[in-house]
């Protein structure tokens, strides 16, 4: 574990803790962006800069703004001071969360990647990424494109309903 990884991990964990501890919803969303930043840094450190910057472009700018808009448009009160942070289902939630975490850890340990660090033949350049997308993974790409188009048309139709 190198120093940079430790720093990035600390950033991600700070963001994650802030996300679950902070009381104002907007603050939670803003600390979520810290998590996204940390993940992007992790990708860049792993020689996948395209993925890292795409993460920033999509998650930090688009998804976070979307979440912020939903938060602002659906809730009148930004902060609920009279509600205890520990709900009745917190123990059940802890159990569920812990088991998911344990399952993930088990899966990661069983994955062949974690057995040893394999050298990449070549760093993942944008060109090779594009070529893979257009040859090997062209079907999933098309399916995702179709799905996104359908979702977009659906959103347009939902928004088009005009009561006036």
């Amino acid at each position: 574990m190198s120093l940079t990884f430790a720093i990035i991990a600390a950033i991600v964990l700070t963001g994650a803790i802030g996300l679950s501890v902070l009381r104002k919803t907007v603050h939670c969303v803003l600390s979520l962006t810290i998590v996204f930043f940390g993940l992007a840094m992790l990708y860049i450190r792993l020689d996948a800069p395209f993925l890292g910057f795409a993460l920033v472009l999509i998650y930090v700018s688009a998804v976070t703004i979307l979440i912020l808009f939903t938060v602002l448009l659906t809730r009148n009160r930004e902060i609920e001071t009279d509600v205890s942070p520990y709900s009745r289902g917190s123990i059940a939630g802890l159990i569920v969360g812990g088991s998911v975490f344990a399952g993930l850890i088990w899966m990661i340990y069983r994955a062949p990647l974690s057995r040893g660090i394999t050298e990449l033949e070549s760093p993942a350049s944008v060109k090779s990424l594009g070529e893979r997308l257009m040859t090997e993974y062209v079907l999933p790409l098309e399916v995702i494109a179709l799905l996104l188009t359908a979702a977009m048309i659906g959103a347009v139709i939902v928004a088009m309903k005009d009561p006036g």
Partner: peptide, 16 residues
């Protein structure tokens, strides 16, 4: 290598 993506990724932080 991904300078353009970097430009727009960082530039879009202005929204935030």
């Amino acid at each position: 290598e991904v300078g353009l993506i970097f430009f727009f990724a960082v530039g879009s932080l202005a929204e935030l």
